[in-house]
């Protein structure tokens, strides 16, 4: 069973966490075409590789970002999301 390093609680076993989907940019709903919006809502990149993902520590309610290599099954990095850093969002 994997160990995930929660930025707040430290190393904890996988079963204390929930996967929250890929870290994605939401297109501007006002300007996105139906096709662009549909692509955002329904399409995910399933190819293995390094992914940016949302993870949630169930016991403490902490959301954080993880960079994970899904090909090698490794968590590379975990960190808290900075709402001020909207450039990536």
């Amino acid at each position: 069973m994997k160990i995930i390093n929660c930025p707040v609680n430290g190393a904890r076993p996988l079963q204390e966490f929930a996967y929250g989907g890929p870290f994605r940019d939401m297109p501007d709903p006002a300007t996105a075409s139906d096709a662009e919006w549909g692509d955002y809502v329904f399409n995910r990149d399933g190819a293995p590789g390094v992914k940016r993902e949302w993870w949630y520590h169930l016991a403490s309610g902490v959301w954080f970002v993880a960079e994970r290599d899904t090909l090698r099954d490794r968590f590379l990095k975990t960190y808290l999301y900075d709402a001020g850093d909207q450039a990536n969002d």
Binding site: G20, W54, Y56, G61, W63, A83
Partner: peptide, 8 residues
């Protein structure tokens, strides 16, 4: 909790 954080 997720959206509260995202929207700040």
């Amino acid at each position: 909790q997720h959206w509260l954080m995202r929207w700040g």
